[in-house]
Amino acid sequence: MTTVLVFLDHPGASLAKGERELLSLAGSLGDVAVALADDAEQTYLDGVGSYGVGECYRPDTEVSGVLVAGKAAFLAEAARTAAADVVLLGNSYEAKEIAARAGIRLEAGVVTDVVSLDGDLVATKADFAGSYTVDCRVTTERAILTVKPNSVDAAEAGTPQAPREIRVPVGELAPAARITGRVDKPVSGRPELTEARVIVAGGRGVDGDFGPLEELADALGGAVGASRAATDAGWIEHSAQVGQTGKTVAPQLYVSVGISGAVQQRAGMQTSKVIVAINKDADSPVFEIADFGIVGDLFSVLPQATEEIRKRGL
């Protein structure tokens, strides 16, 4: 039987959607255990157990005060103790780095950005900004995979019950960088970009006013994204940036508003299911990848669309 260890980071009050997806994927591959670097609330632990997880591995010492190195050392020890064949993580920058370092410690191959995984552990991912689909196999005994959100359907949870806790020794760490300050960012109340079904994204054309985009996003139950031009201008948080150096997203619907469609922007959104583009310049490259394009002024098109959605009572 395959043993799968799922690494859970930054536990909230209950399991996040991406975490439920990871646990479900793990359950489809074999026996599931989790590695949890930080203390979690009872409700969270009960939630983990409701996915059939028997063991929860914890470090014997605090590992989160240093950047990446501590969690990677802990994950490697947990994978050894659990005799895990497969280690699954989420796909945040931090998760990928934890995977990277644990990979060196365990002499295990790492595949990032996985969107599907077959029973034979062949992992599928997109390459070159979504212009290639690539199948990768890990050739070492143990495989470490970071999986993108929205790649698998989360299974129904069973009865809540906390898994058995097992402490693993982390040992001496090499010199590491310390996290000496932390400032929380304001939360928007809208869905997380990488998990959202609908994204309304704005660029330089928005000219500082994201209001009409937020209203459409709310009418569609979506998240608000941005091009780098818009985040660089300070009109919206950097974490809203979609593209090569921002988030890679693949929602059901991506509404691109006042964005020209540079390669670096496309890199983050061109695998979206349906793309709508609104731009006043008919020659904008974004129209090359749009399923529905509107040559027009966003300040008249968006409010009219939002109004129409409300009118239809949708």
């Binding site: 990979g103 002499e107 295990a108 191959g109 790492v110 595949v111 062949v122 997109a126 390459d127 979504g130 212009s131 290639y132 689909t133 690539v134 199948d135 990768c136 196999r137 890990v138 050739t139 070492t140 061109q270 695998t271 793309i275 008919a282 129209f287 090359e288 990848i289 749009a290 399923d291 529905f292 394009g293 509107i294 040559v295 027009g296």
Partner: peptide, 20 residues
Amino acid sequence: WTRVEAAEPRPPRSQGVIIT
């Protein structure tokens, strides 16, 4: 420690409907 087993170019997105 990893090997690429297959690589397929994705079909380019076909252009949809553009209205003014």
